[in-house]
Amino acid sequence: MTKQSILVLCTGNSARSQMAEGLIRDQHGDRFIVHSAGTRPSIVRPEAIRVMSEIGIDISDHRSKSVDEFTDRPIDIVLTVCDNARETCPYFPGAAKIIHRSFEDPAEATGDEDVRLEAFRHARDQILDFTQNEFVRLIIEDGRNADG
C-alpha cells in the first residue's frame, strides 16, 4: 500500500500545524507521509514542543517551513488548521481532498508561562481529539469505503 501525503497548513507553522503533524504521524504514520508548513513561517514555538513532549511526542527537530517548499510536490490531502491558511492556501494540483478545521491559536495567549502552556495544552488536546475522531472518519473510513 502506497502512503498518501498530507500537508498540514497554518499561518506561522509554529504551533497548531506542528502539533497536528506530530499527532498524525504518531497515530497514523503507517498510512500517511505527513508534512506541515505555513503561509508566513516563523519558528516552532517552545511551548508546542513542551506540551507535545508531555504526551510522548517529540517535535523538537521540526522546523518552520514555507508552503512554497511543497507547491511542486504531490500532495494527496491538504489540512488547513486556521482560517487564514484556508483563505491563502495555494492550489495543489492533484490534491484529492482539502479539509479545513480551525483551532484557536495558542500563540496569542498572554500571561505568565503557566497561562501560555495551558493555552498550548488546550490547542493540543483539541487537535488530538480531531486526529483521533473526525480525521479518522473523514480520511481513513471514507477512504476505506471508497476503496471497496
Results as ranks from 00 to 15, higher is better:
Glu69Tyr: 08
Arg137Asp: 11
Pro90Thr: 12
Gly12Pro: 01
Asp129Lys: 09
Val51Pro: 01
Asp112Asn: 15
Val115Ile: 15
His100Asn: 05
Thr110Leu: 10
Ser53Val: 00
Ser42Met: 13
Glu47Ser: 08
Glu118Phe: 01
Glu113Tyr: 09
Glu87Cys: 00
Arg50Ile: 07
Asp76Leu: 07
Leu128Pro: 11
Thr71Gly: 00
Ser60Asn: 03
Phe130Trp: 15
Arg31Ser: 02
Ala95Arg: 06
Asn84His: 09
Val34Asn: 09
Asp105Met: 01
Leu138Trp: 08
Ile57Thr: 00
Phe130Cys: 13
Ser64Thr: 12
Glu21Gln: 15
Gln27Cys: 01
Val67Met: 13
Lys3Gln: 10
Val8Ile: 13
Ile98Val: 14
Arg124Ile: 06
His35Ile: 00
Asp114Arg: 15
Arg121Gly: 04
Pro46Tyr: 01
Thr110Trp: 05
Arg121Ile: 10
Leu79Val: 05
Asn84Val: 05
Arg45Asn: 15
Ser36Lys: 05
Gln27Thr: 09
Lys3Ser: 02
Gln132Cys: 09
Gln4Phe: 02
Leu23His: 05
Val8Asp: 06
Ile99Glu: 03
Asp30Pro: 02
Ala20Leu: 12
Leu7Ile: 06
Arg40His: 14
Phe130Asn: 10
Arg25Phe: 04
Asp58Ala: 01
Ile33Arg: 13
Glu118Gln: 11
Ser14Thr: 00
Leu9Cys: 08
Arg86Glu: 14
Ser102Gln: 03
Glu141Arg: 13
Ala123Glu: 11
Met1Leu: 12
Arg121Pro: 04
Ile6Pro: 03
Ile77Phe: 06
Arg16Cys: 00
Cys89Gly: 03
